[in-house]
Design a protein around this nucleic acid. Structure first.
Length: 197
DNA sequence: ACACAGATACTCT
DNA sequence: GAGTATCTGTGTC
């Protein structure tokens, strides 16, 4: 079953970030399906969060899609090298998002290895830049609906155990002052696929 | 025009 | 495990 738009229409991105753990992210790029269980996420809140691209609701060409209604993909380039995959949340006009940081590969492992030019399954989806590459995510998915043909999220066949969620501070946001300390990173306890071992 | 980034892959110990 | 080069779009001056 595919996750519908109302799942993303939530005023609290940390709730969406937690709820996304255990769900399965799919992409279909050039006719090839790859998928992985989401094991690590981070929440970003537009108006109040210094670590967010849309801090103080500042709209730019890059972050424009964050101001759309939840349920779209926000992709951007960081360090001139890596594409990071985010999910826009909340109602139109509220620029919140959840960053997907790590996956546990399920389908299309061979394709992921080829895309990342690796021959070992470990650590090909354990980090936001790596997983984008493994899943074939790039700027062409910017603004794409998560109900579309190329990227979507499904519920797992068996229920996910909420007791296994760990809260931690976000990564790479030291510039955000006090907001850098917010426990808005969430991951599945003891999962080997998270980005920091 | 210019400084720098929601990270990774190297190269050494 | 720790230190270091990476290399370009975007935002701001």
């Amino acid at each position: 079953m595919i996750v519908q738009n109302d799942f993303y229409i939530n005023d609290d991105p940390t709730e969406v970030a937690k709820n996304l753990l255990g769900k399965i992210l799919y992409t279909k790029i050039d006719g090839i399906i790859t998928s992985g269980i989401i094991v690590e996420t981070e929440a970003y809140k537009g108006n109040s969060d210094r670590a967010c691209h849309a801090y103080q609701n500042k709209k730019t060409n890059r972050n424009a899609v964050m101001f759309e209604k939840g349920g779209k993909a926000y992709v951007y380039l960081v360090y001139g090298i890596h594409y990071l995959f985010n999910i826009v949340t909340n109602i139109k006009g509220k620029a919140d998002a959840v960053l997907i940081r790590a996956l546990e590969p399920v389908k299309g492992e061979n394709k992921m290895l080829i895309r990342n030019n690796k021959n070992n399954l470990r650590r090909i989806t354990s980090g936001p830049g790596l997983l984008s590459k493994a899943m074939g995510i790039d700027m062409s998915l910017y603004g794409e609906s998560l109900l579309g043909n190329r990227v979507w999220i499904e519920y797992p066949s068996k229920e996910f155990d909420n007791n296994k969620i760990v809260h931690a501070k976000r990564i790479g946001v030291d510039y955000a002052g006090a907001d850098a300390l917010l426990p808005w990173r969430f991951y599945i306890k003891d999962n080997i696929w998270i980005s920091k071992p």
